[in-house]
Design a protein around this nucleic acid. Structure first.
Length: 339
DNA sequence: AACTTTCACAACCGCACGCGA
DNA sequence: CTCGCGTGCGGTTGTGAAAGT
C-alpha cells in the first residue's frame, strides 16, 4: 500500500531553524496550541514540514525544557534506566523531567556510552566485556531476570508517560482540578504496578495487577502497596520503585551483605541498585569532597572542587569510583538472581 | 594562521503504532 | 477487517564549534 509522505516536501525548508521561524512557531502555538502538526506550518506561515515543527517544539521551544549540563543524578538515572530498558529513550525521558528523549539519546551516545566503553563495560549489556567469571547458566538466568525487570519497568514507564500526557491535557482545562488529583494518584500508583509485579515474580502470586483506568482501583492499589511497605518487605528503592527481597519465599528485611563464599544462590550478594545509587550520589566521604561534571578533561567526568585539589588523590578517587561501578555492574548479575 | 580532525547536538528520516472511518 | 492518517520513536546524518597539528 505504501505510506504517503507526512507532507509535500517540495519547496519546504530543511536544516537549522532561524530565530524568525522559532518566533512564528512559538507565537502560533501560544495562541492556538499545536493542533494538527500537518496543518500547522501553513497556518503559522512556515515553510516547514509538520514533523519538523513538532520536533522543534518538543526538543527546543517547549517552555518546560531544561537545557544545559546533565547533573550527576541525571547521569545516574540514565545509566540505571538504560541498563533496564535499553535504548528506549522516551521511556527514560519520562524519569528525567524537563529533559527530552533526543537530548538524553545524544548525551548517551556522546558521553555516557564512551565513558562506559573506556571502562571496559559493554554499553549495551552493561556488563564488563571480558566477563568470564559467570557460568553460562547463571548468565542465562541473569539475562532472563533482567528481561523480566525490563518488561514490567517498561510497562510502568509507558503507563506513566500516558498519565503525564493526560495530566498535561487536563492541566490546560480549568475544570480539571479534580481530574488532576486523580491523575496524580494514578501516576504515583504506576510504580505500584511494578511492586506488585515484583511480588508476583518473587512469590509467584499475582496481587491484583489490573489495568490502569480507574482512579479508585488505583487508590486501592496504593493502599495495598503501602501495606507491603509497612510490613517492611522493602529493602531498597529504585527511584520510586520498591525493591522487595525474598529468600526462599520468605520476605526479609535483613540488610544485604556481600557474599563471600558465593555458594548461596538465593541470597543476593549485593543490592546493586541501592549501592549504585549511593555511589553515584556520592554519599560516601568521597562524595563530600569531589563533584562531578561533564565536559571536563578527564575520562571519567570527575573534577575536583576547591576543597579537594590534590590531583593524584582525586585521580585515585576517580579510579575507585569507576572501579566500584564496574564491581557493582558485575554484582548486578548475582543480585538479579533474586527475581 | 591555515588546515584538518574531532566533538556535540540539532534535525532528519523511515518505520511502527493507535485510532477512527 | 482494512485502510489511511497523525503521531511518536529510535537510528542516523549534517553542521557548526572546538581542539589539534
Amino acid at each position: 500500500m505504501g505510506r504517503s509522505p507526512c507532507c509535500d516536501k517540495v519547496g519546504l525548508k530543511k536544516g537549522p531553524w532561524t530565530p524568525e521561524e522559532d518566533e512564528k512557531l512559538l507565537a502560533y502555538i501560544k495562541k492556538h496550541g499545536h493542533g494538527s502538526w500537518r496543518v500547522l506550518p501553513s497556518k503559522a506561515g512556515l515553510q516547514r514540514c509538520g514533523k519538523s515543527c513538532r520536533l522543534r517544539w518538543i526538543n527546543y521551544l517547549r517552555p518546560d525544557i531544561k537545557r544545559g549540563k546533565f547533573s550527576l543524578q541525571e547521569e545516574q538515572t540514565i545509566i540505571q534506566l538504560h541498563a533496564l530498558l535499553g535504548n528506549r529513550w522516551s521511556a527514560i525521558a519520562t524519569h528525567l523531567s524537563k529533559r527530552t528523549d533526543n537530548e538524553i539519546k545524544n548525551y548517551w551516545n556522546t558521553h555516557l556510552k564512551k565513558r562506559l566503553l573506556k571502562m571496559g563495560i559493554d554499553p549495551v549489556s552493561h556488563k564488563p566485556k571480558n566477563d568470564t567469571l559467570l557460568s553460562n547458566d547463571s548468565r542465562l538466568k541473569g539475562t532472563t531476570n533482567l528481561s523480566h525487570m525490563a518488561q514490567w519497568e517498561s510497562a510502568r514507564l509507558e503507563a506513566e508517560a500516558r498519565l503525564v500526557k493526560q495530566s498535561k491535557i487536563h492541566s490546560m482545562n480549568p475544570l480539571s482540578n479534580k481530574l488532576n488529583s486523580d491523575v496524580c494518584l494514578m501516576k504515583s500508583s504506576a510504580s505500584i504496578f511494578s511492586t506488585n509485579k515484583f511480588y508476583e515474580l518473587v512469590v509467584g502470586e499475582s496481587k491484583s495487577l489490573r489495568s490502569c483506568g480507574n482512579a479508585e482501583i488505583v487508590r486501592e492499589e496504593s493502599k495495598e502497596v503501602r501495606e507491603y511497605k509497612n510490613e517492611e518487605n522493602v529493602i531498597g528503592e529504585f527511584n520510586d520503585v520498591a525493591i522487595p527481597v525474598a529468600i526462599d519465599n520468605t520476605w526479609t528485611t535483613q540488610p544485604l551483605q556481600l557474599s563471600n563464599n558465593g555458594d548461596d544462590q538465593h541470597v543476593p550478594n549485593n543490592n546493586f541498585l541501592e549501592h549504585f545509587t549511593d555511589l553515584l550520589l556520592c554519599t560516601s566521604s568521597f562524595g563530600d569532597r569531589c563533584n562531578f561534571a561533564r565536559g571536563d578533561n578527564s575520562d571519567t567526568g570527575l573534577v575536583c572542587n576547591d576543597k579537594f585539589k590534590d590531583n593524584n588523590d582525586c585521580e585515585d578517587k576517580s579510579k575507585n569510583y569507576w572501579d566500584n561501578i564496574l564491581n557493582l555492574t558485575n554484582s548486578a548479575q548475582s543480585s538479579s538472581l533474586m527475581f
